[in-house]
Design a protein around this nucleic acid. Structure first.
Lengths: 132, 132
DNA sequence: CATGTAAATGTTATATTATTACATAGCGTT
DNA sequence: AACGCTATGTAATAATATAACATTTACATG
């Protein structure tokens, strides 16, 4: 079990927005959506995003510069993330597959490097888009 | 064996620069370095980068917004990339591990999605930085 | 060789994403 | 109260990437 973090005001506003969104949100789209709540500047958004990422409540989809709420209720996997991304509709979901995460967490090569973190993004067509 | 692509002038200038660099290069650093060769605008750089990525001569390190030459001589793996990234010195190298690539290329979950491409980034400390 | 077409180039402007720098406020601990 | 830490506010600017449009080159094929 993970220690429950208390979110600050800005962090909570921004997390709630991302959490409710059915798709990854971009930073400036977040900004636009929270301006009515008094968050006016990009930096306020980025600071909250940084913190939320740090504590594992959200993840950044690197190839899209977008942010998604963590879909693993029992999280703590901010250091081991995998996503599936539809290249047609841009739907993104977090992959939660224990075999995969075990395999990757234990992966090592001959470089002598010990990996403490990874991020994996799979691309393809989702069911819906495939059948079009 | 892969069909040999002929690079255009701009593509060749930019590929040669990236290929010679010991570390990933950022787009505007590339631009700065090729201005003396007549490539003056960001778009010229991005167009060459896009093409080079498409044909697998370079890869983009998504978490760093940087570009690296493909280190697999027998390439064709622009659709299946894995990198190791040192979070201290920012050294990046391409992982070429057939077990890993087989595992990931064959990966499927219960989403019904068929993945045609993936990108994996491992993070940690390289040998040198670990021993500091 | 003429012509069509796809790829590449050149140029300007602008959009999008992210950070620096500095000042202030809130909150728990000692 | 004084300290340290986290969060906030604000303005400016840096860094990354694309849109729109005009022109040129490469090259296959009639």
């Amino acid at each position: 079990m993970q220690k429950q973090q208390t979110l600050s005001r800005n962090q909570k506003i921004i997390f709630d927005l991302i959490d409710k969104s059915p798709e990854p949100m971009k930073a400036y789209s977040i900004l636009f959506n929270v301006q009515k709540k008094g968050i006016k500047a990009p930096l306020q958004v980025y600071r909250a995003l940084d913190k939320l990422i740090e504590i594992g409540k959200i993840h950044k989809i690197e190839s899209r510069n977008a942010f998604i709420a963590c879909q693993n209720s029992s999280c703590q996997i901010s250091k081991a993330t995998a996503f599936s991304i539809c290249e047609s509709c841009e739907n993104v979901s977090e992959i939660s597959n224990s075999k995969l995460s075990k395999y990757l967490s234990n992966f090592s090569d001959d470089s002598g490097m010990k990996y403490s973190k990874y991020n994996l993004e799979f691309f393809g067509l989702c069911k819906k888009c495939k059948s079009k």
